[in-house]
Design a protein around this nucleic acid. Structure first.
Length: 268
DNA sequence: GTAGGATGCTAAC
DNA sequence: TTAGCCTCCTACG
């Protein structure tokens, strides 16, 4: 679930449900009780996302900063069920609720602390006004692999393990190629593609990366069986045949995450 | 019933 | 590089 598209979608959903509304805040699990009490009964003014960070604004100096990490999950709806003991934060109005479970971060921060988080994050393909230039400065000087750089939130914010694997496949780039061996044209194409793919992800609330001509219907192959949500080329398809060339999709650990790629379609 | 893994990140070594 | 955080779900007995 939680790559950048999920967080931007959550920000939009929070704005639609709560912006301008007086919100009740509780922490059934208890770990956020003191902070929840401080915002309980306050008006949520806005919600925004930068990369995988969600910010709920209750005033200039009163922000709830949330990071879902690997396990964090939101349940949104209109009528709140009885809270269970794993709900870290419940926000509710008479007509809407949001339950947060298992986040890496859920904390009340000031405007200054929020700015510090923005400052350590790279440009985000989903943030209006962000572009590929600042990221290119880092990428073009780095000996690290492009696969590692795409996962580095200081370089580019919001890309996770699925978008990383898929965008590199879509551009035929070997994941182990060094950043400084990419061309400016290649990087700009990767960025532009991420803008499109991630906006699709926000709209659909899932990750689909397969081009129309390669869908199961178009190619007469069975639909994917993996349950991560969307239609993809390589992510979690280890040892399965590549949709394009039929070669076996490979997998390897890289920085404690699983990398997937096609050794034939993705050349150094 | 239990083990293991998952779309993430950080602090500590 | 590794352990740890924290929850849910699947695969396997």
């Amino acid at each position: 679930m939680p790559e950048g598209h999920t967080i931007h979608r959550l920000a939009a959903d929070h704005r639609a449900m709560f912006a301008g509304e007086t919100v009740r805040a509780t922490s059934p699990q208890g770990k956020f009780s003191d902070s929840a009490a401080l915002i309980d009964g306050h008006v949520m003014e806005t919600a925004e996302a930068h990369g995988k960070h969600l910010f709920l604004g209750f005033g200039e100096d009163e922000w709830v900063h949330i990071h879902l990490g690997l396990f964090g999950k939101y349940t949104l709806g209109d009528t709140a069920p009885p809270p269970t003991e794993t709900v870290r934060l419940r926000l509710a109005t008479p007509t809407a609720f949001a339950d947060l479970r298992g986040p890496t971060a859920c904390e009340l921060i000031t405007g200054g602390e929020k700015q510090a988080i923005h400052d350590r994050l790279g440009p985000d393909p989903l943030r209006p006004g962000d572009g590929p230039d600042r990221a290119w400065t880092r990428v073009s000087r780095s000996r690290s692999s492009v696969a590692a750089l795409l996962m580095d939130q200081k370089v580019i914010a919001g890309v996770g393990n699925v978008y990383r694997a898929e965008v590199l496949f879509r551009h035929g780039i070997d994941p182990y190629r060094a950043g400084r061996d990419l061309t400016r044209r290649e990087w700009d194409a990767i960025w532009a593609d991420l803008v499109v793919l991630m906006h699709d992800g926000v709209r659909d609330n899932r990750i689909d990366t397969v081009r129309p001509e390669h869908t199961p219907e178009a190619m007469g192959r069975p639909p994917r069986v993996d349950d991560h949500g969307g239609e993809v080329y390589v992510y979690r398809r280890a040892a399965m045949p590549c949709h394009i060339c039929g070669d076996e999709i490979r997998t390897a650990g890289l920085a404690a995450r699983n990398l997937f790629w096609c050794p034939t379609c993705q050349r150094a």
